[in-house]
Design a protein around this nucleic acid. Structure first.
Lengths: 135, 135
DNA sequence: CGGCATCCAATGTGATACTG
DNA sequence: CAGTATCACATTGGATGCCG
């Protein structure tokens, strides 16, 4: 008889599961893509390299913090390359790596499904909400 | 000359941008897919319908709350159908709708890329981290 | 120009206990 | 069995100010 039973066993199971799920490649990718700005940055860089300020302007609503953070994550993952040119005002260019470019078709697939079916989803959502207006 | 300038203009721009980005179908889909459990539930239901407890067991680490919440969202979006059978212990079955099934290839595409390239990402990540161990 | 550090509000996630 | 409700905690995102 263990001093702690159900709670402990569940905790252990969760640990094991978290380790498992953390190791799942798909979940890792989804965790990355799901980040609010990753896809935007990927697409913005898809048409070629860009400077930091270009990205900030092109993606508009993004805060400095999130743009920097997103770029750092993508760089860390080998999806984006960061090139610093030492000049009087420093110049920093970002570009997709081959690995990053290989991800573009996936994003395109997502975009394609979204453009084809998202109206159905929004319709379903509206109908569902209509049944519970005071929710 | 407005009494408030830069801060206000930025706020307005952000509002406009947020409206724009909220309307972007791809972002909406990514926001959904990016949810921690959505993809898992989708895949779990891909092989046919399942009862609530089946899902809870199959997806293991998920909490009751998150499973229910995820299922509600998917139902609201018309991706999952919920069928209640009135019995002495109530029986609830979940299944993908045609719309939900149409999303499976997209998830498969993501999974495929992840399984093919994720090791490269992890390698890049490890190399990157090796340069800043005390980070 | 291209960041980083700090603080703060909002949201997401989960444990736990209770219900028809 | 299949939830709902509440509380606590971790993470996220943004505003702001400073720096090389």
């Amino acid at each position: 008889m263990p001093t702690q039973t159900a709670a402990q066993r569940r905790a252990a199971a969760k640990q094991a599961y978290n380790a498992y799920i953390a190791a799942c490649p798909s979940r890792q990718l989804l965790a990355t893509l799901g980040d609010k700005w990753v896809a935007l940055v990927l697409v913005a860089l898809g048409s070629g390299g860009a400077r930091y300020a270009d990205l900030a302007r092109h993606i508009a609503g993004v805060s400095q913090k999130m743009l920097t953070q997103t770029l750092r994550v993508l760089e860390r993952d080998g999806l984006v390359r960061r090139k610093v040119t030492a000049a009087v005002p420093v110049r920093v260019d970002y570009a997709l790596t081959p690995l990053g470019r290989s991800l573009l078709p996936v994003v395109a697939k997502i975009k394609s499904w979204a453009e084809t079916h998202m109206d159905r989803v929004l319709l379903a959502r509206a109908e569902h909400d209509a049944k519970r207006p005071a929710q």
